[in-house]
Computed example of a mutant assay.
Amino acid sequence: MSPQELAEACAAALWNDDSASQRLGMVLDRIAPGTAVLTMTVTDQMTNGHGTAHGGYIFTLADSAFAFACNTVDQRSVGQQAAITYIAPAFKGDRLTAAGREVSRKGRSGVYDVTVTNQKGEVIAEFRGHSRTVKGTLLGA
């Protein structure tokens, strides 16, 4: 299996059990070794008292992109630590894109950056996640 085929198989297995991402209307747009792109439209239920997208939903989108990016080699990886910096507000109806990429993967630890943008290409948030591999595989082989 090529690295791309492995990444696609791992993403399919992870997606099958990811009810949080699915129920929030996220779409897995692209997967490749060490990278993932997910999109989500901000709904009325995702807005806060300021009339902007609640930061928790933006974080969740970025965290999902991080999860898919760090699980492309069939070794279960989980988030060990993550931080987000909000750059600009998002609003109801905005289509957000979270593009995650591997910065480093050594031993059991990985570092991943995710940039969240809106449909105009404006940066909404920057996220950095640290992953840790755990026992098991996604494909069960």
Rank of each mutant, 00 (worst) to 15 (best):
A9P: 08
A90H: 05
A9G: 04
I87C: 14
V116F: 00
S19N: 06
F66S: 04
H50M: 15
G49M: 13
V116Q: 02
E122F: 04
G34S: 06
V111C: 05
I87T: 10
L14Q: 15
P89G: 03
T133Q: 13
K120H: 12
A67M: 06
W15E: 09
L61Q: 01
T60W: 15
P89Y: 01
P89N: 11
Q75F: 03
A11P: 10
T72L: 06
Q22A: 14
A83E: 14
L24K: 02
A65N: 05
G110Q: 12
F127A: 01
V27K: 09
A82E: 06
W15I: 04
L139M: 11
T60E: 08
A141T: 11
V78C: 05
A82V: 15
V78I: 05
G136Y: 06
G93V: 02
A36P: 07
V78K: 15
V114S: 03
T97C: 13
A7E: 09
E126S: 04
A69P: 06
G79F: 09
N118Y: 04
L14W: 09
D113P: 08
G121S: 11
S104K: 07
T41R: 05
E5A: 12
R76H: 10
D94P: 02
T52G: 14
P89L: 01
A83V: 15
L138H: 00
E126D: 14
K120A: 11
A98Y: 13
R128W: 07
R128I: 09
G49W: 12
V37M: 07
K135G: 12
G129H: 04
T97N: 08
G107V: 11
A69Y: 13
L14F: 07
I58M: 12
V134A: 15
Y86V: 03
G110L: 00
A88V: 00
T60F: 09
G49P: 07
V27H: 11
V73A: 07
L96H: 01
E5T: 05
G100I: 00
P33W: 00
K120I: 08
V103I: 14
A12L: 09
R23A: 14
G34Y: 02
K135V: 04
F59C: 03
A20S: 12
T115E: 10
